[in-house]
């Protein structure tokens, strides 16, 4: 075997990696039929933070001080103690146009964290589509943190036996609000209907309906959930022509409407094909049914056996062997 063959072989695995576009290519996952989620309308949010408080109460999270001088609950960003946060966007010029944005898990349709978790600690419910986390399975590698486009899962770095925390739509073990027919805490307490709960399909429909409204008109915004009999009338704002989460990375189950551009509000610009799909396509192209590795291994075994025999044979005559090496 000459060097050319060797190089060929050395890059065999990697070359297979580049041969994407074969039958294994996987597109985005489909939205589960009964997928639930939330619709956050930033133009309705008044920044009262009732959702932040409710979230802390329900999930048993401690308050988080930002500085010793401000000894009240004032997280600056999502953290392992703050699974839901209201942030304020201030436009660079003038006073008008500022907006609040609620950040929490987007419950991706094709979730990066679920795709990358080595031990299936991150799970997507096949029915509701809620992305949940099982700390008893989790090994704490934090790949989910790295692979989340929204930077949602948070690890408790300050604890000797920390765990990953994330919003599980108030349906985790011991809370189970969705299963009990209740609303997620943040949707239930929202006084203006800025954040409502519902089936993703209904919410998407509602979002499209709102976008079709004429700015300045009156519209009754639902309170709590999309099926709620209660509503509050308000003026229709100028919406951005963009339903965030409809298509981002294959879609999310938490949808957003806003009056400002989403990149200004700190939301990433994500291609429609999820990174999870790209990653899994590459991975499965290489390792589909372990065919490629098995083939490579077969070749390797053959050559290793042949060549090691050669070298063992050579050993019968060490002097000859060495004389070949020692010459410079």
């Amino acid at each position: 075997m000459d060097r050319r063959n060797f190089l060929k072989l050395a890059s065999a695995g990697a070359v297979i990696a580049t041969s994407s576009g074969n039958a294994q290519a996987r597109g985005n996952l489909e939205v589960p039929d009964e997928a639930v989620g939330m619709l956050f309308d930033a133009t309705r949010c008044i920044g009262c933070r009732a959702c932040v408080v409710a979230c802390k109460d329900i999930n048993g999270m401690p308050p988080e001080q930002s500085t010793p001088e401000e000894p009240w609950d004032l997280a600056m960003d999502l953290s392992a103690d703050t699974l839901n946060i209201i942030k304020a966007y201030e436009p660079p010029q003038g006073d008008d146009g500022f907006e609040f944005i609620k950040r929490n898990c987007m419950h991706c349709v094709d979730a990066g964290c679920v795709s990358v978790c080595p031990v299936t600690a991150m799970k997507k419910d096949p029915k509701t589509g809620i992305v949940s986390h099982d700390p008893d399975a989790c090994i704490g590698c934090r790949y989910c943190v790295a692979a989340c486009p929204y930077n949602i899962p948070k690890y408790e770095y300050d604890e000797a036996m920390g765990q990953i925390q994330k919003c599980q739509l108030c349906n985790q073990k011991g809370v189970e609000r969705i299963d009990n027919g209740e609303l997620p805490g943040c949707a239930e307490v929202c006084p203006t209907g800025a954040n409502i709960y519902g089936k993703r399909s209904d919410l998407l429909e509602e979002a499209k309906r709102r976008m079709a409204l004429k700015p300045g008109d009156k519209y009754v915004y639902k309170l709590g959930s999309i099926d709620s009999p209660y509503g509050q009338e308000g003026e229709v704002p100028n919406y951005q022509d963009h339903i965030y989460g409809e298509k981002e990375g294959g879609g999310t189950q938490v949808l957003m409407l806003a009056g400002n551009r989403f990149e200004d509000l700190g939301m990433p610009d994500i291609p429609e094909l999820s990174y999870a799909a790209v990653s899994e396509t590459v991975q499965h192209s290489i390792y589909s049914n372990f065919l490629a590795p098995a083939t490579v291994l077969g070749g390797l075994l053959y050559m290793a056996r042949r060549n090691i025999k050669g070298s063992q044979d050579e050993e019968q005559d060490p002097n000859q062997d060495k004389s070949g090496e020692d010459r410079s």
Binding site: S115, V116, C117, P118, V119, T120, A121, P135, D136, A137, C138, I139, G140, C141, R142, Y143, Y155, E156, Y157, M161, G162, Q163, I164, A276, S279, E280, Q283, H284
Partner: peptide
């Protein structure tokens, strides 16, 4: 590893996520 005591889960076929590069 943040939860090193759980590392054996990587070797339990039930827990393995074959989509994961990390696995």
């Amino acid at each position: 590893m943040g939860r090193y005591w759980n590392f054996y889960n990587m070797f339990l076929p039930d827990q393995m996520n074959l989509n994961s590069v990390m696995l």
